[in-house]
């Protein structure tokens, strides 16, 4: 179970196949994400990136293969038993998926109040929600409705909801899709901040190579409260792996140097070489 790096595997796919109405979405996909690792998943639209995240969350059941999260095989668990595993995973959905009938405060408090395995004291919920919203710099939006926020603010509120329970595994589905470059950078900065402060394992689906580049080469300086380049690519014990999906198949897996050196035409479409 423990990979060669010595760290325990948080997430493990073993020959996973997923299809919808006979159309394959993931084909024979295997991967292993260890504790503290970041994985950047690139691929064209419809290549299976979102399905991969939903399968890791137990929202989609594979046709074959095994999905192990924190050592538990999700394919053998009933829906009710999956809730305990899901309480240790935070997920940012593509369109934020904030509940539009709830205020921002109620949205962020939702996992604290509804995940029974967490048993968070009710009297501390408000304070924890404020902390989570302060973390994403949305402190003044408690009473607002999701429809009153801009796209970037909704995405930040959804990040607050994903991290409010301090889950050790975080899944981000296209967090910068449809956002302007400045807002997109703010979102990625928050993801890096969350990863480095709480040492979370992170899976990030994106179309933008810049997002992966920031994840791989920057770290959060908690003293100054800013992102800074990781010296000589050193982010301590954490590492970033890039994955490229094509029509449900994993066609590349490796670090950024290998990705940029790849001669595969499909892989190269997603790569924008760094400035030396």
């Amino acid at each position: 179970m423990t990979p060669p790096s010595g760290k325990p595997a948080i997430l493990r796919f073993e020959n996973v196949c997923v299809s919808f109405d006979g159309v394959p979405a993931l084909t024979d996909l295997s991967l292993e994400a260890v504790e503290g690792e970041s994985r950047v998943i690139l691929g064209a639209a419809g290549s299976g990136k979102t399905v991969l995240l939903k399968t890791a969350m137990g929202l989609v059941r594979p046709d074959s293969g095994r999905v192990l999260v924190f050592g538990k095989d999700l394919t053998t668990l009933r829906e009710r038993d999956l809730f305990e595993v899901r309480s240790r995973i935070g997920m940012l959905f593509q369109e934020s998926a904030l509940f539009d009938s709830l205020t921002i405060e109620e949205n962020v408090a939702y996992p604290l109040l509804n995940q029974r395995s967490i048993r968070f004291p009710k009297q501390q919920v408000h304070q924890r929600v404020e902390e989570a919203l302060d973390f994403v710099e949305l402190g003044g939006t408690l009473e607002k409705w999701p429809s009153e926020l801009s796209g970037g603010m909704r995405r930040r509120a959804a990040i607050a909801r994903a991290v409010v329970t301090n889950p050790p595994l975080l899944l981000y589905d296209s967090p910068t899709a449809g956002l302007d470059p400045i807002t997109a950078q703010t979102i990625i900065a928050l993801i890096v901040k969350e990863r480095d402060l709480n040492k979370t394992t992170t899976l990030l689906v994106t179309h933008r190579y810049q997002d992966g580049n920031l994840i791989a080469n920057f770290r959060y300086n908690s003293k100054q409260g800013v992102l800074e380049p990781a010296r000589n690519g050193d982010r301590g014990a954490a590492r970033t792996i890039f994955m490229v999906l094509r029509e449900g198949r994993l066609v590349f897996e490796g670090d950024q140097n290998r990705l940029e050196a790849s001669s595969d035409q499909y892989v190269r479409k997603f790569v924008k070489p760094r400035e030396k």
Binding site: L59, F83, S87, M91, E95, L98
Partner: peptide, 14 residues
Amino acid sequence: VTEQIDAMRALGTD
């Protein structure tokens, strides 16, 4: 269609 049902499942609710 806005993935709120999936979000509900992800956040511990049937």
